[in-house]
Design a protein around this nucleic acid. Sequence first.
DNA 1: GGATGTGAATGCATTCACAGCA
DNA 2: TGCTGTGAATGCATTCACATCC
Lengths: 221, 221
Amino acid sequence: MDFVRPELIPDPTVRRLSLYLRQLEQLQKNAQLTVNSKQLGGSLGLTDAQVRKDLAYFGTFGHPGVGYNVLELISRIKRILGTDKAWNVVLVGVGYLGKALLSYAGFAAKGMQLVAAFDSDPEKVGQVLSGHEVLPMTHIAEIINRHECRLAILTVPADVAQDVATDLVHAGIRGILNFSPTSLTVPPTVAVQAVDVALQLEQLTFQVSLNSMTRSGVRHP
Amino acid sequence: MDFVRPELIPDPTVRRLSLYLRQLEQLQKNAQLTVNSKQLGGSLGLTDAQVRKDLAYFGTFGHPGVGYNVLELISRIKRILGTDKAWNVVLVGVGYLGKALLSYAGFAAKGMQLVAAFDSDPEKVGQVLSGHEVLPMTHIAEIINRHECRLAILTVPADVAQDVATDLVHAGIRGILNFSPTSLTVPPTVAVQAVDVALQLEQLTFQVSLNSMTRSGVRHP
DNA sequence: GGATGTGAATGCATTCACAGCA
DNA sequence: TGCTGTGAATGCATTCACATCC
């Protein structure tokens, strides 16, 4: 990577970087060559200043009077996010969700190589799903080592998630995409991203309840 | 709901409310009767002050010198989030992900009634998946009306997501759980929660790259 | 002219620290 | 004493506004 003092980049900025990338890839498909901060932010509901400040954390790659070169910006952001390289990934827990993720094409598009899937259920071990053989949990450490995996997708039941996570970390995993509804405790050298559909549904019901309140019912001036 | 000036509650607070609820339900299983702000926050990596401030937005239901009554707090938070009532939900887009979500038990646990699934593919229409018959898209408005659905789960390809979302909103949907990797444009009366696995993977690769940089490589003082 | 990059100003969210209650 | 609820203080993130450059 090529920016200074990386530790003090705001988390929200990194989130938006992914959004910019998504938007830019769309523009690229439409054969648009350059984009300015107002356009890029507008479709995402962000201000132009926000976009410029975000990008400025990582260097200065805009062109005053013109905007940003779409292809250039795509490649810069990919390098920043680390998706310009290939990553080997393991998936643990082949339930409904795990199966769905095994057949998810988006991983490969982001440079993710799914090298193996694991499950503790002997019934599932040996099955081949979307081209991936399900292996027993006992092989986790060996496979992670052999393929130098740094990322894991965790789709096991909540009550075993912490134990599995600890094993993964010991085996060398440095980032976990956690689909189990539990807060994992891991060393500070390990990153965790939580995906919790139930939680997001609750956010929705809250917002919807709120909207229906503030618009129809009593006004709060 | 029973709190004043709901429009000025910080978004992060609402997110954490869901986390508290998850934690509290765990405590309930362990038959713990009360919990103080330090315990509740600790397991989630939050300070005690944070917990107290969050809860105080919605009233005063702690007991000085004691803490919070677990059962009472669960029921209060559920009421705040709106998950004490039942919600009818439709799912649109029966791909790999849609199928996985149809068999997801977590919905029912949060009071969600999945009333129908829709897909535009004639091959899929008529199939019964996890007890839900797949209906053609032409029936969306009618079903939403008949069951007074306010929530929708959107698992269609990105290029049709905006059109489907617009239809859903016209049919009366007020909250969308969006799994398509696109930013939806909807009226301010409609809430959207985005679930983007590819995006979260990018966050992970960023953090992992960062960690391996700042720990082994050059230090940035 | 048109758009970037950036210090300064603003606006939020988190943390502190303590009064008050059981 | 132990813990809550909360104004005050701090710390971040966003927005403003303008000097700068193509």
